[in-house]
Design a binder for these strands. Structure first.
Lengths: 122, 122
DNA sequence: CTCCTTAGTTTCCGATGGAAACCTTGTTTC
DNA sequence: GAAACAAGGTTTCCATCGGAAACTAAGGAG
């Protein structure tokens, strides 16, 4: 049972997938959806700083990749709910770890940045 | 013990860190360095498709954030070795999981894309 | 009649990424 | 002694991408 895919290969399709997942906004969206279905504007408010265009584009790509499902309800005004698919759920632990590593290790990173910037260079 | 950082907040410094980590090239570099120190051109060959400019820039940022260390040796020609710092090592399991999730789930993603593209839309 | 809601799309501009050329130091080849 | 090659970058140029803001559609409230 050899792995047919190699993410280090430029032409491997896994590269496209990694490119999609290794994205600040995709990570935040997937992590947010782990708590349950969320509407478009709710996501937009929760993930402060994301633009409508990028949220829309990112959701569309995640839907195409089978990670997120989209359900529109004929309410007034129309509401649309986004949720994780089973495939998407296999990813949330990893994505969540990445998103929250920064929160746990922020102090160390800031210290490293100060040390780097203080060191004479060039 | 309240977490002072929230990655969902636009102005939180964790956002900058997530932006750095949630990057295709950074993920591949960190995963590659997990096996041990590697030289610049070796990384460049292993990670097919990365340009020198982006490799150089990404390594510099990772070094500034304290995730990667840089060691230059006065050989001829000069060799430079990049390695994970202890802080960087706390991240590799997560990063590796992300990089290789695509390899394990590629078939499912491709199937989802075909289904999405086949469905009439708009 | 006007404003507000949801869920987007469009437009415009500045920032980023990739390709390719150039640079520096020093060694080997012709 | 000129050319080529090696490592580790930097510079230049252009195309694409991201963010800000405006616009769309369909309906409800005041």
């Amino acid at each position: 049972m050899d792995q047919p895919y190699d993410v280090y290969e430029e032409r491997c399709p896994t590269r496209m997938v990694l490119d999609r997942l290794a994205d600040k906004w995709a990570v935040l969206i997937l992590d947010r959806l782990d708590a349950g279905p969320v509407r478009f504007n709710h996501l937009r408010r929760d993930i402060s700083g994301i633009s409508q265009k990028v949220l829309s584009q990112t959701l569309k790509k995640l839907e195409r990749d089978g990670l997120v499902s989209r359900a529109a309800f004929a309410t007034v005004p129309v509401t649309v709910e986004y949720a994780l698919t089973p495939l998407g759920q296999t990813l949330t632990e990893t994505v969540s770890a990445l998103a929250h590593w920064a929160e746990r290790n922020m102090a160390a990173v800031l210290a490293a940045q100060r040390a780097y910037d203080a060191a004479p260079r060039g």
